[in-house]
Design a protein around this nucleic acid. Structure first.
Lengths: 131, 131
DNA sequence: ATATGTGCAAACTGTTTGCACACGA
DNA sequence: TCGTGTGCAAACAGTTTGCACATAT
């Protein structure tokens, strides 16, 4: 695999902060550095980086795929209020469910859904005002 | 919400066996009963049934969404060999990760990936032949 | 030098939607 | 009856791909 500036900046966009971006968001971010990069190239590089294990995908109930530049084992929390995605550490998984005896488990992906701290607070405040 | 034959058969398709189907697979199955049902109607009913909590969606690394007619709490295993999706019981989740203190967690979705029993066996056999 | 990556635009896939008509309540 | 659901086809969004050109090795 060749080391191009496009590939470098796509990876940098995902690693610069602890964020979870869609392909279009990566595209917008990389365009600040390489103004004429094409969305197709972003998709191709995201695909390559996933294949080489340098980034992960995050599947949520949202229509589009998110990409995560940090590949140490962790889970995600999706806020139904503001849409933000948070990294959370893996629950100390006791053991695999019994149905998986004889199965070869390679990976476990957990996504929590709910309201983040800020949204819980915001909604509580709104309730209090109404009363 | 009105009780139509289309809606009924979409739900029946998902409940008739313990399977996880894509919209198109539901469409194909329902067409055996209602030959002129349209794919749009299938999508609309799937959407309604999800909203009313009668069915669940299953997000996997696959491009398309799967639907699950059984809504008791459970997790899923996706076989990377044959593509089958299995229901598995929820791991005895010890407690939420510490980062979620102050968060309101409404739901937890876990998907395991790997090889199912059959695929493990099939691949082992192939290896043995080669040796 | 040459094989791989790029930009561009068109194609593709899964899903949604507007419309006129059908049908459940 | 009348408002919601349907079939149809067109539109849409996200993603992939074929091509000629550019560039890393």
């Amino acid at each position: 695999m060749r080391n191009t500036r496009q590939r470098e900046e796509v990876l940098a966009a995902l690693r610069s902060e602890r964020s979870h971006l869609t392909a279009t968001q990566v595209y917008d971010k990389v365009r600040e550095k390489i103004s004429n990069i094409s969305l197709g190239t972003v998709y191709r590089n995201l695909g390559n980086l996933v294949q080489s294990g340098e980034i992960f995908t995050v599947e949520t109930s949202d229509k589009c795929l998110f990409y995560d530049g940090f590949t140490f084992p962790h889970s995600h929390f999706v806020c139904n209020g503001c849409g933000a995605i948070f990294d959370v550490s893996n629950a100390n998984s006791v053991e695999y469910p019994p149905e998986l005896n004889g199965f070869s488990v390679e990976e476990e992906r957990t996504v929590y859904y709910g309201l983040c701290k800020n949204c819980v607070k915001r909604i509580d405040e709104r309730k209090n005002k109404k009363q």
